[in-house]
Design a protein around this nucleic acid. Structure first.
Length: 673
DNA sequence: GAGCACTGC
């Protein structure tokens, strides 16, 4: 059962409709026939068509679970979605959650031997393949919202294609909201003239479309392009408010900064509204917003008030807000990009794709006919790409490739990807895995190091450091640090935007060696004091829920290590004398970190900036780092990200140059040539 | 001198 209190459950909003009234009900027989007849079925249907909740029930009642098999549904890569959909289906089936209908997400397995319909995240289904490569427990696997093209669902598609060859009786259902259904079908089906398990292309799969319940949306373009989309967006909000009858407004902007600006600007102009007219309530929405503030977006506005929701892309697909009639689309989105030559990640503001623009506009037509105001010209729209590049083409692939290798994929380059990743990304990932010792020069996973690294739900660098921790007598401490690093900066939280106060409080935990040991202090203070004392957390600006999550991660990591035969408890009683133990705990931890993060080394210059080991890139310590103000020589860092033209590193710790050569001689010999 | 789109094991 739940190991922790559920957090971040604020973003749920989809109107409940009686199952018999859903558009999908008319297609029940056709769906069952198609899934019975063909190994692969592609479902095209809008959100709200009922596909996710109804198809598993149809299959369950039609006998697909009669032999004890399970129907798996990876309901979008989101925890909240898996739990809420499972709860609704359990209610419709009339069972207790965890019995016939259950779900499984990280830290929370609410399923049992009786479970026949199981909702889970695609990441977890991937992990299950380590134990059960052919997924034999399942008779049907439904990949929901595959068009979102997340890294894990893309990988899952490739693996399922392989599994289908060995299990002709398995059924794969792929759901997609857009019209790229044919690409999905073509991917699974044999090419013309060939057969898979005796079946030709025509015998292998079908597409079924379910009518969505969309109202028409009137699209408006600008005649002339604008330079300041925030200013124009705010003007549009006010125009709508002054000239259009009822209906809430949803404005898409790329990021938090623009959103805060827009909210302020709208708030300023509200004061000009004539007394007695309808009021306007501007509301921000982005993932980083505390969940209590996110809730306002879903609550009905006060009487005689129109909501103007200013949101990131989170409202495009992840979250559904009812009663939106006017959508304003600035035409931009922030996307992660990864540069394989430097290994630097970047959040770039780029034009949206046509698919994205369509999805945004559609948000206006859920309850009645709506309007969409695009803050760009029709010519600009025509120049947009058709769809957003999938994650697999713009991410660091080292974790993915490690996982694929651990699943026994013999040749990573020739794996049947739904979209091929650029070869530079694959090469960079392989180089990194090789330098960490996870793969051999023949590109085979090493044993035990490579397989163990793949087993841990951590980045390869961090996994390597954690697996080395016992050697340095700091396993206990490294578990704490690893758990906190997975929170990526959410351990501290400012109250009411008071960043100055936050900085001051953080100094209490800060140590001269850098952020990792500082994090260790934070974790130890939390488990000794803060865990029982939420008020203490508040006065120390610690995010209680995030810290609880860190405790869960830490426990899960410890269990993984025990499973790998690395005893966590015995580390405490280890003989702590002589050898490595003549060094201080801090030095042992920092040496241990260096064994994983040597490729993330940099040296401070007199001006306080850092230079990468190859001298090619200038880095800044992120302002949240304890080394932001301090002097240092060589350091290693956890995360590197470009923002506004500057490259920032987060979680930075001092090391010695000698350690780099000692723990990564190959890497640094090559680099120095 | 300054800040993280969105998920997830």
């Amino acid at each position: 059962m739940a190991e922790e209190e559920e957090y971040g459950t604020a973003l749920i909003a989809e109107l409940y409709k009686p199952p018999a009234l859903l558009p999908i009900a008319q297609l029940k027989d056709a769906l069952l026939y198609t899934i019975e007849t063909y190994p692969v079925t592609i479902i095209v249907g809008e959100t709200g068509s009922g596909k996710t909740t109804q198809i598993p029930q149809y299959l369950h009642k039609a006998g697909w679970t009669a032999d004890g098999s399970v129907i798996a549904v990876t309901q979008q890569p989101r925890r909240v979605a898996a739990t809420t959909v499972a709860a609704r289906v359990a209610e419709e089936v009339g069972c207790q959650l965890g019995q016939d209908v259950g779900y499984s997400i990280r830290f929370e397995d609410v399923s049992s031997a009786a479970t026949r319909i199981k909702f889970l995240t695609d990441g977890l289904l991937l992990r299950e393949m380590l134990v059960d490569p052919l997924l034999k427990r399942y008779s049907v696997i439904m990949i929901d919202e595959a068009h979102e093209r997340s890294l894990s669902s893309d990988i899952l598609l490739g693996l399922l294609k392989k599994v289908l060859r060995k299990r002709p009786e398995l059924r794969v259902v792929v759901s997609s909201a857009t019209l790229d259904a044919k690409d999905f079908l073509d991917f699974f089906c044999p090419v013309d003239g060939e057969k898979i398990n005796g079946k030709s292309k025509e015998e292998y799969g079908r597409i079924i479309s379910i009518e969505g319940r969309m109202h028409p949306v009137d699209i408006n373009y600008l005649i002339e392009p604008v330079s300041d989309y925030v200013e124009r967006a705010v003007e549009t909000v006010m125009d709508i408010h002054n000239n259009e009858p009822d209906g809430d407004v949803l404005l898409f902007l790329p990021g938090r900064e623009d959103i805060d600006d827009a909210i302020d600007m709208i708030a300023d102009r509200i004061t000009d509204l004539a007394p007695g007219t309808q009021r306007l309530q501007p509301l921000p929405l982005y993932a980083g917003l505390p969940s209590d503030q996110q809730l306002y977006v879903f609550q009905a506005a006060p009487e005689n008030t129109r909501k103007a929701i200013v949101s990131t892309n989170i409202a495009e697909a992840s979250v559904t807000i009812e009663n939106i009639v006017h959508v304003i689309d600035c035409g931009y989105v922030k996307l992660r990009a990864y540069d394989p030559t430097t290994g630097i990640e970047r959040l770039a503001t780029v034009p949206v794709s046509k698919a994205s623009a369509t999805q945004r506009a559609g948000r206006a037509g859920r309850t009645k006919p709506g309007k969409c105001y695009r803050l760009y010209t029709e010519a600009a729209y025509n120049a947009f790409s058709d769809s957003t590049p999938p994650e697999i083409q713009r991410s660091n692939l080292a974790p993915t490739i490690l996982q694929l290798m651990n699943l026994g994929i013999p040749n990573i380059v020739r794996f049947d990807y739904f979209s091929n990743p650029p070869s530079e990304l694959v090469v960079r990932a392989m180089d990194m895995l090789f330098s960490l010792g996870a793969i051999s020069p023949e590109a085979k996973l090493t044993k035990p190091l490579g397989t163990r690294m793949a087993e841990l739900p951590l980045s390869p660098m961090l996994a390597k450091a954690l697996l080395n921790a016992q050697t340095f007598g700091c396993l206990y401490e490294m578990l704490h640090i690893a758990a906190l690093l997975t929170l990526s900066g959410t351990a501290f939280i400012a109250h009411d935007g008071n960043l100055k106060q936050l900085d001051k409080v953080k100094r209490k935990f800060a140590v001269e060696e850098g952020d990792h040991i500082t994090l260790l202090n934070v974790y130890e203070a939390f488990i000794t004091t803060g865990r029982k004392d939420a008020q203490w957390c508040r006065s120390n600006f610690l995010n209680y829920k995030a810290m609880q999550k860190a405790v869960s991660v830490r426990n899960q990591l410890a269990r993984h290590l025990e499973k790998l035969g690395i005893s966590v408890s015995s580390d405490l009683s280890a003989q702590r004398a002589g050898g490595i133990f003549s060094l201080s705990p801090s030095e042992r931890i920092r040496r241990c970190l260096t064994t994983g993060f040597f490729a993330h080394a940099a040296r401070m210059k007199p001006d306080g900036t850092f230079q990468t080991a190859n001298g090619e890139t200038t880095l800044w310590a992120h302002p949240t780092s304890v080394l932001f103000h301090r002097k240092a020589d060589w350091v290693i860092y956890d995360e590197i990200m470009e923002s506004k033209g500057k490259v920032f590193v987060r979680e930075v710790t001092k090391i010695e140059m000698d350690w780099l050569v000692e723990y990564a001689p190959e890497y640094y010999r090559v680099k120095q040539r």
